[in-house]
Design a protein around this nucleic acid. Structure first.
Lengths: 205, 205
DNA sequence: GACGAGTATAGGACAAAACATATATGTGGC
DNA sequence: GCCACATATATGTTTTGTCCTATACTCGTC
């Protein structure tokens, strides 16, 4: 469903082929908020054309296979506008890492620390990728277009999430390290890994 | 795949029926990190039994339909242990809200602000739910078991993500508001919604 | 006694996503 | 000539997740 509108959105900016959408949109610009398989792109385009939200025409090329270029129809544009302005529930969380953490009693402290570090590394990599995307977006531009500003905002949003993940993981690793040290020194084992941080009620912040 | 191990994990704590898993685990304890449909639970249990990772026995009840209670096998426990200790790539981001933001040039400032507020409300609700779950977990306990500590950690992790989302949305709304005000007063329109915040390079934090 | 709510399991249908393979053309390197 | 690579589209299959319906028994209530 959302994929439909991501595609309509990209077509609202420029007429494109399925190949363009895959390589120039989903593999690059959009990869931090929506990914799509090549097969998925072509099949969705077929469906959108069947529903008269896009049209296609074949364009021959010299020295390259011919392309099928898609164009947004007026009703496609309407559908996009309506979807963009209405609320959509965020998808449910589904993170294998939290399953691991939830059942971490089966792991040794060392194993758990390793899992935390690996998770951190994944998020660190994603954050690095986001930074690269952002600097690519800003490169050589003194003033961003309104278009670019929104692209930038999506990157900043994703980055703030990644930073939250990394910070949390750092805290958890530090707590684990401190716990291990306390244990080693034979002092009273610090059982509680996390305090309440005053987070059990009241305002958001 | 991950669902398999979530189920194995819950069975590692207690023998349970599909109904128990659905209502007592996935609908309650685990809902902030993994959700599963009833149909999915039963079908996954069938598959796990076929693969000899769990076994089942029928248990008759008085005044209630009989239950099919599942139990982890030794090889199921092995499979769980191995999965828990190895790294798993976090699933790709897929957030319809970021699609909306990315194509927000098609929206008026008011529409966009409304979308941001609605998104905020979703996340606020989730955070509230997380807080409730956490206080439910802590209720009447002076000392948490190691088991509960990990449950608490998953809640804290989810909460930190939600807080990051909400904070980012608040910033965005504030910027939008300030922009609108500047425009109204006829002063030079503040084009850039977001600064760079020094985030284009260097260390994570 | 009809009806809804709770307990319990199961299967059909479908949509979304992932994974794999096929096909056709032209370029450049070995 | 062969192989890899980029361009370009298409289809087959499987897995995962969602939605809906069916079945069956008990209890409380209107």
């Amino acid at each position: 469903m959302s994929l439909d509108f991501a595609i309509l959105g990209f077509l609202s900016e420029a007429d494109q082929s399925g190949y363009d959408l895959k390589t120039r949109c989903f593999d690059t610009q959009a990869r931090h908020f929506w990914t799509a398989d090549q097969a998925q792109v072509y099949r969705t385009l077929d469906r959108l054309e069947r529903d008269h939200l896009v049209t296609s025409r074949h364009v021959a090329q010299t020295a390259k296979p011919s392309r099928r270029v898609f164009k947004l129809t007026p009703s496609g544009r309407d559908a996009l506008g309506e979807w963009l302005s209405s609320a959509h529930e965020p998808p449910p969380y589904r993170d294998p890492f939290l399953i691991q953490l939830y059942f971490a009693e089966h792991l040794t402290d060392d194993s758990l620390a390793e899992v935390l570090r690996e998770s951190r590394s994944f998020h660190q990599q994603r954050l690095g990728d986001l930074r690269q995307q952002l600097s690519g977006l800003l490169k050589g531009k003194k003033r961003l277009s309104r278009r670019d500003e929104f692209a930038q905002m999506t990157l900043e949003a994703a980055m703030s999430t990644e930073r939250a993940n990394i910070d949390w993981l750092d805290d958890a690793l530090e707590t684990l390290r401190a716990e291990a040290e306390a244990q080693e020194r034979g002092s009273a084992p610090q059982k509680r890994l996390f305090g309440l941080n005053g987070d059990t009620g009241g305002e958001t912040r």
